[in-house]
């Protein structure tokens, strides 16, 4: 009896393991790490900020994570020259700092976009098809999770539960929560960004015209 129970248990466990490995097999591989080219003058700005932080903090290996957090706090992400500079100051290979930066979810190598899209992958969202929503974003924006579009407009990332499982699948765009998403709604959200941008531009132009008009009179 006991023997049979053990066999049944082993079988169930093996099935669960098999399922897990199949699930892992569906994950995409990240292709490039530093995706975006730096803008003109940006490198100088980055190096200036980083050396400022390095001056005011202990530069020892055990202080590496707080340093990276501080740099990300100022710049919003960890650009290539910043990592190289930190590694050189602490006197460790740059690849070690890079390994650390890619290990932790909090640290990012690509700048946050104007619209930060966070797709929820909590239990409820995962079960109801959060992967489909993430894939729709990836297809539409032509980037994979963790990256930013070349025009720095949208950045895409996956997060754990955001706390509104009743309206799963959920996506958070710049602190604004969208629930019960479908791939069609994904297109809608992206269209909305274009609309918002056009409105903004129109608003700016109006302001300019007004200020010009004010100068004229």
């Amino acid at each position: 009896m006991l023997r049979r129970n053990i066999d049944v248990f082993e079988e169930c466990k093996n099935k669960a393991l098999l399922k897990f490995v199949i699930m892992l097999g569906e994950l995409n591989c990240v292709k490039e790490m530093f995706l975006l080219e730096l803008l003109e003058g940006e490198k100088e700005f980055i190096l200036e900020q980083v050396s400022e932080i390095l001056k005011n903090n202990r530069t020892e290996r055990e202080n590496l994570v707080p340093l990276l957090q501080k740099v990300q706090g100022v710049l919003g992400y960890l650009p290539e020259p910043a990592i190289e500079k930190i590694a050189k100051t602490i006197d460790i290979p740059a690849v070690d700092v890079f390994g650390l930066a890619t290990f932790y979810n909090q640290l990012r190598l690509n700048p946050p976009g104007k619209y930060q899209i966070k797709v929820c992958m909590g239990t409820a969202c995962h079960m109801i098809g959060g992967q489909i929503i993430l894939e729709s974003f990836e297809r539409r924006l032509d980037i994979v999770e963790g990256e930013t579009t070349p025009d720095r407009k949208c950045s895409l990332e996956r997060v754990a539960c955001v706390g509104c499982c009743a309206i799963a699948p959920v996506v958070v765009v710049n602190e604004f929560i969208e629930g019960s998403l479908t791939p069609t709604r994904v297109d809608g959200i992206l269209l909305q960004f274009d609309g918002d941008d056009q409105e903004e531009e129109a608003g700016e132009q109006e302001q300019e015209q007004e200020s010009e008009g004010g100068q004229d009179s």
Binding site: L27, C29, V30, M33, V95
Partner: peptide
């Protein structure tokens, strides 16, 4: 004592890479 390769990423994606995951020729 070169420091050209190291581990990066985590979990199933973990791999041995150079800095920035460039080719070895672009590394130290």
């Amino acid at each position: 004592e070169v420091g050209a390769i190291g581990f990066s990423l985590r979990g199933i994606k973990r791999k041995v890479t150079t800095f920035g995951d460039y080719d070895l020729a672009d590394s130290p």
